[in-house]
Design a protein around this nucleic acid. Structure first.
Length: 551
RNA sequence: GGCCAGUUGGUGAAGUGGUUCAACACACUGCCCUUUCACGGCAGCAUUCACGGGUUCAAAUCCCGUACUGGUCACCA
């Protein structure tokens, strides 16, 4: 009996040896420094902010170096799989325009290193596992869940490290004959890697983010193939896939750091070149006085759909993440306003190695700036796209009043320092509703008068203004001078300096009067430039609104 | 509990031995500008880099210890 007999018994259908795949998957034609990265999510639902964060790093790293970025679907855990997940992931990457160069989706394979779905790579994994068995570095394990549970309890009681290693690796001691006999008898088994490591030995490893690490060697005979469906575990699949797909840089969350020794031992057992590793900090969330990993279940903002629903420009989300990726991004961006984020040279070394807090306020600020720099027509388009999905009523109004809406969004926009009042697209309606009669009329009105609250006085101001001073065709200076004349007539200060010198001589000032007009027309004390608003509304609608107020 | 990692202001953080020992941005506060708001301008916001000790003429920066936080210890990724 030889290892080969065992290997053939377990994988009778596998005829190739591993060199076969070196023939199929030739080294990529890369120039010096060109990087190959990959995003490898498991299809368990909506894409997570932390996952997107990694995908973005992958993308930037690849584009920085003129390399390539691919998507690999890690669906080896079929219990957790969600059918639509791959579509959701692709949709998100597409929406943010960080599309992979190679991927498999909807039955279509793009790229020469596929399949890019792990469940379709079973034969490949089996070939590599078979090889390990043949060289005596893997073996079948027949321990049941209960056996393992019992073992763990014993280890805990006796204060040993838990795990399948050393004297605890029961099935490792089985003879080939015993192994073969059990398999022939139909006993269920997993395949475990046979570790040669010693936990007491430490070795040094350089992670591109964390720098030099000191890690214990792996000594666990961890599972590399599951019993139920013959699919590999992450550990094996990671090593085989990233080798065959020629990944140069593995970007993953730092929760993987503790299993890195396993992966390194596997690479070594296969004699494969080890890729560079970028273990990224976790995105965390502050809760009272503890810090925790951002969670899909508890935190709405952990899911990418949150940003879609709120209508953040995609670039805002990307830039907010870029500032976490490298905090010098912002400085670079202000110095290079015309360059795209992929022109920014990402440096893993400069990445913080502690947990990063994704600050929604910061995102708002970035988003405001981005929207403020857009053309009014582009704001309209983006808003319309958003409303189509999330706000039917507003969508219809946008269709009905397209030109009007663009003029509205253009108020105080085309100037050196544009207004920054739109946080995101879902916020716009809250800011401009009073400019649409349909919304204005149906709204339960609350008038936010400030200093002047006396009803008769308000009516007097409005009516006098409309009767004697308002002219639709006035330009801005004339318009404002008329308001000043109105002030003079009614006993308000038209000149702020004079008012400040002698406030007692007046009933109020031009600001108070303007506010009355503003509130009368919009109900709000805070709006963009009143002149622009009145110009857009036009005489009839203004009169109508004043009538509504009077009634 | 074992192993690994981290700890600079409200936030993201720059800074790895000394010419600003704490940049920049967000947030916050005050003032100014102003028909409101937003914008913008000015100013303020860590005498201090988790704590304790050591090395050094000199440390946030190097070393040791402590504390705290996080990650991980699955036939999940």
């Amino acid at each position: 009996m030889t290892n080969k007999d065992l290997a053939d018994l377990i994988f009778p259908e596998i005829k190739h040896d591993i060199s076969y795949y070196d023939e199929i998957y030739k080294p990529r034609d890369l120039k010096e420094g060109e990087k190959v990265t990959r995003f490898a999510p498991s299809p368990t639902g909506f894409i997570h902010l932390g996952g997107f964060f990694q995908a973005l790093i992958d993308y930037v790293l690849a584009k920085n170096s003129n390399g390539l970025f691919y998507l690999r679907n890690e669906d080896t855990d079929q219990k957790r799989e969600i059918k639509e997940a791959t579509k959701l992931i692709m949709d998100t990457l597409k929406h943010y325009d960080i599309m992979p160069d190679e991927y498999e989706f909807d039955g279509k394979i793009v790229g020469k290193y596929g399949p890019y779905v792990q469940s379709e790579r079973k034969e490949i994994y089996h070939t590599f596992i078979k090889y390990l068995i043949e060289i005596g570095r893997a073996y079948p394990c027949f321990c049941t869940k209960e056996d393992l549970e019992k073992k763990r309890k014993q280890q805990e009681e006796r204060k040993f490290r838990t795990g399948y290693y050393g004297i605890w690796s029961h099935c490792r001691k089985l003879s080939l004959e015993e192994q073969i006999e059990k398999i022939k008898a139909g006993e269920k088994y997993v395949i475990r890697f046979k570790s040669l490591g010693n936990f007491e030995n430490k070795f040094k490893f350089d992670d591109l983010v964390k720098g030099r690490l000191e890690l214990p060697e792996n000594d666990e005979d961890f599972v590399i193939m599951k019993s139920d469906n013959g699919l590999p575990t992450y550990h094996l699949a990671h090593v085989v896939d990233d080798y065959l797909m020629k990944t140069t840089h593995v970007v993953r969350g730092e929760e993987w750091l503790s299993s890195l020794p396993k992966h390194l031992e596997l690479f070594k057992a296969f004699g494969m070149k080890i890729p560079k590793y970028i273990h990224t900090p976790l995105l965390v969330k502050k809760e009272e006085n503890s810090v925790r990993k951002i969670s899909k279940r508890k935190d709405p903002e952990a899911t990418m759909t949150y940003y879609h629903e709120k209508g953040y420009p995609t670039l805002a989300v990307i830039e907010a993440l870029m500032t976490i990726i490298n905090s010098n991004y912002e400085e670079w961006h202000t110095a290079n306003p015309d360059k795209g984020f992929t022109d920014f040279q990402y440096s893993p070394k400069k990445m913080s190695s502690s947990g990063a807090f994704f600050d929604l306020e910061k995102l708002d600020n970035i988003s405001r700036n981005i929207i403020s720099k857009m053309k009014a027509a582009d704001v309209y388009d983006a808003l319309y796209t958003w409303a189509k999905q999330y706000d039917e009523e507003f969508k219809k109004l946008l269709e009905k009043y397209k030109e009007y809406s663009i003029c509205l969004f253009n108020i105080e926009r085309e100037q050196k320092k544009p207004r920054k009042d739109f946080v995101n697209f879902s916020d716009i309606k809250n800011q401009v509703w009073y400019m649409y009669d349909e919304l204005f009329e149906k709204k339960e009105k609350e008038y936010h008068f400030q200093k002047i609250t006396d009803k008769d006085e308000i009516q007097k101001i409005c009516n006098t203004y409309m009767a004697k001073y308002y002219h639709e065709k006035d330009d801005k200076d004339t318009w404002f001078n008329k308001i000043k004349e109105l002030c003079d007539e009614l006993g308000y200060a038209s000149n702020m300096k004079e008012y400040k010198e002698n406030p007692d001589h007046f009933k109020g000032n031009v600001a108070d009067v303007s506010t009355v007009l503003r509130v009368a027309i919009t109900t709000l004390s805070m709006t963009p430039d009143l002149y622009e608003i009145m110009k857009l509304l036009g005489k009839e609608r203004i009169q109508k609104r004043i009538r509504i107020l009077n009634s």
